[in-house]
Computed example of a mutant assay.
Amino acid sequence: MSAPVTAEGLSKEALARACADAMWADDKASQGLGMEIVEVGPGRAVLAMTVREDMVNGHGICHGGFVFSLADSAFAFACNSHNQATVASHCAVSYLKPGRLGERLTATAQERWREGRSGITDVTVTNPAGEVIAEFRGNSRTIRGTLIPETAE
């Protein structure tokens, strides 16, 4: 039996990956939407999702709520990469192009600012051609707790 993962002694990259793994284990929403973690690091995350038939609205394009959900999940993984439990306090999205049935959308989140308990993270959602379909900005707030223990008990 392997020892439980703790933050002690991990590099920032390894810590970000361990935090993502811990979050992913219980993230039924992102999993249920078919999202995949492509990359994660300190203050950044890349998630992808393929637009399914049940995600298309009456205009024949990806419903904005699914685009928002993808961006929000990438935001969450980027914000929580420092092993401090962090939630959204405000988010805004601008839709620039439609997502289409069958397209694999990619959300790239990058922390822009973090100080004290607050942060700002930008997320760009692109289609397979690399075209930007949405820009998302999230404000985060650190709450009590960690994703993985700081040290072994």
Rank of each mutant, 00 (worst) to 15 (best):
D27E: 03
R117E: 12
M23H: 01
E13M: 05
C62Q: 05
K12M: 02
G34V: 00
F66E: 04
D122L: 13
G99K: 12
D122R: 12
H82C: 14
S11P: 07
E13H: 13
D21V: 02
V125I: 13
T50L: 06
E103W: 09
S2P: 15
G119T: 05
H82I: 13
A152Y: 14
F136D: 04
G65Q: 06
R137M: 01
G64E: 07
A14Y: 09
A48N: 12
V67F: 12
T121A: 03
S94R: 07
L105Y: 14
P128E: 01
G130E: 02
G130F: 02
G9L: 08
T106L: 09
P128N: 04
H59N: 15
V93I: 12
E111N: 09
D122K: 12
D26I: 04
P149Q: 05
I148R: 06
H90L: 09
W24K: 05
F77Q: 10
A25P: 00
E13T: 14
D122N: 14
V87Y: 04
A7P: 11
V125P: 13
S81D: 11
M55C: 04
H90F: 10
A18H: 04
T108P: 05
A29K: 03
A107Y: 12
R117T: 12
V87L: 06
A20Q: 00
